Amino acid sequence: MNSQISQPVIACQNLYKTYQGLDVSVLNGIDLSVNTGEQVAIVGASGSGKSTLLHLLGGLDIPSSGDVQILDQNLAKLSEAKKGDLRNQCLGFVYQFHHLLPEFTALENVAMPLLIRRIGREQALTTASEMLEKVGLKHRLEHMPGELSGGERQRAALARAMVTSPQCILADEPTGNLDRHTAHAVFDLLLEMNQTQHVSLVVVTHDLELAAKMQRRYKLIDGQLVTL
């Protein structure tokens, strides 16, 4: 693992983002590098730009200026199709809302990213089943999202993010809709996956107690990252 540390999984340099109609930059010259297996927490006030930064790092939005690299590939130089392929191969996303498809079972939801990769259905379902077992949902494979608790839905969403063996998970308020006990359980599961799968974590959260569990912590203030 140490031999891989030298290459950042995700990096950005001098990143700016301004939305039309706003007089100030939401992000104002962000520099950040995330190496293999690192844990990075980003906190900040509502509207400070935390989610915007995460979307830029994941190639889901385009910066006003500055560069984002995923495994040394500059996103600005890639077509939308190539960016989509890179996201599917290298990144996993977890959001405040689980975004599970209600008409599919937990197993089918988790298998979906593999099916998008054109992996055979049987293999995709087997891999998805194994990942659901790792997050403690072996007994919920055939349940629909509406039949799962809030914590179970987030575990399923985490399994879906992890099923492709990504090199980095980008999580946007992944425990924001959960009660305190469940939030800590889901967050600890994220950290466990970080350790066992050597996946990097970049987590946006408003919860300072949860952020304190991470190796590196930043606060987004006036469009700048300040080390905590």
Rank of each mutant, 00 (worst) to 15 (best):
Q89A: 13
G223C: 01
R87G: 01
K219R: 15
C12R: 11
Q89N: 12
R160K: 12
N194Q: 12
I169D: 08
E173G: 07
L141R: 06
Q89F: 06
E142Q: 15
A161Y: 08
E142G: 14
A156Q: 10
K138Y: 00
A128C: 04
V202I: 15
T126N: 11
I116M: 08
L107A: 10
H99G: 00
E38T: 10
G176M: 12
K77Q: 15
I119S: 00
C90S: 11
T164D: 01
D31E: 09
G146V: 03
K50C: 11
T182L: 02
K17A: 05
S25R: 13
L57G: 06
D23P: 02
L189A: 04
V186H: 04
G58Q: 04
A124G: 03
D67P: 00
H55M: 09
R140K: 11
D67T: 06
V34M: 04
G47D: 08
G49V: 11
M193C: 07
Q20P: 05
N28L: 08
Q96L: 11
R160G: 09
L107T: 11
Y95R: 11
L71S: 10
R155M: 03
E192L: 11
S51D: 11
V24M: 10
G120W: 01
P63Y: 09
E209L: 09
I10Q: 08
H99L: 00
L75K: 13
L201T: 05
D222P: 03
T227P: 04
V94L: 02
L201G: 04
N74P: 01
M193H: 03
S149P: 05
L86H: 08
G66F: 14
H181R: 15
E80Y: 03
V204A: 12
L115Q: 07
L220R: 14
L78R: 03
E108W: 05
T227E: 15
H181N: 15
V226P: 01
A41Y: 13
A156E: 10
G136N: 09
K50I: 10
C90P: 00
S6F: 01
D23G: 01
Q96K: 06
R216L: 07
V163D: 04
I10L: 14
E80C: 11
L60F: 05
D172Y: 06
V110H: 00
